[in-house]
Nucleic acid binder design. Structure first.
Lengths: 179, 179
DNA sequence: TTAATTCTGGAACGATCATTCAAATAAGGA
DNA sequence: TCCTTATTTGAATGATCGTTCCAGAATTAA
């Protein structure tokens, strides 16, 4: 459904509150009534957009994680993909910053995607530890959280205007912490 | 001026777009007309609030940085203060996520505060390197950016619902990357 | 006390908000 | 072709938006 992708594009760089219904009607290229018939209202459309974005984004993370001979290569590939795509605002980060945990339906979406990503990263961290490329003294749960937190860090830095070169330095130093 | 602090409190957890003028009037405990006479309009009030918040927050970071016998202790104190105060939403992060670099007046405020913080962190990083508590192979500029990026990371994680215990693990691992 | 100044709150402004009803149009299947 | 089903569009809903005008209350200065 390409309409949802258009909604993702709008919410991504304007947020929820600053996006008007008429902006959405224009961007989705469907009639106003069709929008309400299909998605219910603005909030439900937003939830669907975030859900879809989170699923897509998590898929991309997982795909990158599978990369490379060593597990650490997959982790590095994931971070580098984040750097490479950082010029496009992250709807996940935006959504969390705008609403925090105040909206249960939204929080559930974030938690589901977060758990899926966390599990995959955790597995790779453990593999990297048995390969000897991540220090075994480090708690793998904490390492996984650290990596996902640094994905957010890279994206916030990008949103604040950092150059790609500086973003990849962030990724490198994050990896260094696990060596 | 306590009115501005009230504005900070409102913008901090609702963002700009979702905050109405009447909400501000109620929160600032001043008349509606006084609000417009004093601050001009909602946007200028927001700019003032962000400016003040950024200054206060940077002051707090700098104060923490001065802590401890070694330079690294100051850096650690700064991160730990962030962890300790992470339950209150950061207006800086919120502002960057909501507007990115689209509003020149706002971006200037962020840049000013960012530079002030960066310089102070940079100085401490260099000191820590000559003390031997941060590896000298690391580019100090990158280390400083990494540290400030991880402040944002901790705050986003907190906004997403992470427990304080997990946040301090983030801080620990960030420091580990510089060892 | 009086005069000047600041602050407040009601009323109203036009604009836009999200949303719905109803009629018009388009599309597809028989 | 006609009938049914989607889709779009115009018009209107009540609400709320940011902001201004204005008259009165409160505060301060003289």
């Amino acid at each position: 459904m390409t309409a949802l992708d258009a909604a993702i594009g709008v919410f991504r760089d304007k947020g929820y509150a600053a996006t008007s219904a008429s902006t959405l009607v224009d961007a989705l290229h469907i009639g106003r009534q069709s929008l309400y018939d299909t998605f219910g209202d603005k909030w439900r459309l937003y939830l669907e957009a975030v859900r879809r974005y989170a699923a897509q984004e998590t898929d991309a993370h997982l795909a990158a994680l599978k990369t490379g001979p060593r597990a650490l290569d997959g982790i590095e590939a994931m971070l580098m993909r984040v750097v490479a795509t950082a010029s496009e605002t992250c709807l996940g980060v935006g959504s969390i910053c705008e609403f925090g945990t105040t909206q249960p339906e939204l929080t559930k979406i974030h938690e589901a995607a977060g758990l899926r990503l966390h599990s995959a990263v955790l597995e790779r961290v453990r593999s990297a530890q048995s390969e000897g490329s991540i220090a075994s003294v480090i708690d793998p749960e904490q390492a996984a959280q650290f990596l996902t937190a640094n994905i957010a860090a890279i994206r916030v830095a990008a949103r604040a205007g950092s150059r790609a070169e500086d973003l990849s330095a962030l990724a490198r130093l994050a990896l260094r912490g696990l060596r």
